[in-house]
Design a protein around this nucleic acid. Structure first.
Lengths: 163, 163
DNA sequence: TTTGCGGCTTCCCACGATGGGAAGGTCAAG
DNA sequence: CTTGACCTTCCCATCGTGGGAAGCCGCAAA
């Protein structure tokens, strides 16, 4: 089948299918004489696997790992489980960060009258000279490396930190 | 003062300061005869405002709006409040999406023995032919592994609901 | 004065995942 | 044969951030 059909069946856009092929996430597709890519049900199956993995927040790189785990019939389920649960930890960290933002914003908004007057604790909070009062206090090294880079973003010690 | 000093005082990297200038978020900096950019306390103040806004998950575009609200002394606090609360809604949506992923992954992991045997409901769940059962709902671009840091910053994830 | 170093300048590249769109080839139906 | 839908490759943009090169500037030590 052509790429458009595979796209519809898998829910992965044609752009993405080509991209996954290009980056080596999936093998090079077979070609018709015309040059058109040719897919079979197994290809579609793999694409669906990829899409569902993306839906669960895995990066493409991680999906590469998942595909290996999928095709490796001798690997232990414990390997998969730890892979998944580590990802869950990242997701929870991300949630906690967002939640902290929400809490800060809501507490600022709670003190804002929200009427016609111009005084506004929200803007004042952002403009405060007292630097980091808005930020959640935890500033320990706490590094959790996301795939692709960490980088202890300079806090005040701007330019020259271990980058 | 030079850009490096402004960076240290504001907590915004020199790279980002130039980027913000280039994209028009902040006005063009004054220059010394040497060509070096020159900043004063008001500039640093604005940069700190920007950094704190980023820490709360606003995109650069939104920060442009916040800067306008900041400098507009005649705007109503209600304008600021609705701006902030709408952003809070986006953050909550993002949290809900991530939470759905976490729930799905944890329920799959719950059924995985996590031992030496190869059978694994997690992989099976991803590989299922039954299409979208894992999918919480309509998906949209999510980017949450931003390079970097610890705490609340650039999570990228949070802010970008539509891109 | 010369040397050296660190800071500054601009410019280009990279990332991750995705889409847009142009220029052109292919295929099936009319 | 024409038309229109589909396919191909190639390049560009996104968004926020950093890396790094090539070259100037400023200050201090030798």
């Amino acid at each position: 089948m052509n790429i458009g059909r595979a796209s519809k069946l898998s829910g992965v856009s044609t752009k993405m299918i080509r991209y996954y092929e290009q980056t080596g996430l999936i093998p090079k597709a077979a070609r018709h004489n015309s040059g058109y890519r040719d897919y079979d049900d197994a290809d579609v199956h793999r694409l669906r696997f990829i899409r569902r993995s993306r839906d669960l927040g895995f990066t493409v790189e991680q999906i590469g790992g998942l595909l290996n785990l999928w095709s490796d019939r001798s690997r232990a389920s414990a390997d998969v489980k730890s892979f998944a649960l580590e990802h869950v930890e990242r997701l929870k960290e991300k949630m906690a960060e967002i939640e902290a933002m929400v809490r800060t914003l809501e507490s600022l908004a709670d003190h804002c009258h929200g009427d016609d007057r111009p005084e506004c604790p929200i803007i004042e909070g952002l403009a405060e000279d007292d630097g980091d009062s808005l930020r959640p206090k935890r500033r320990e090294p706490q590094r959790f490396g996301t795939p692709g880079g960490q980088s202890a973003r300079h806090h005040g010690a701007a330019t020259k930190v271990a980058h």
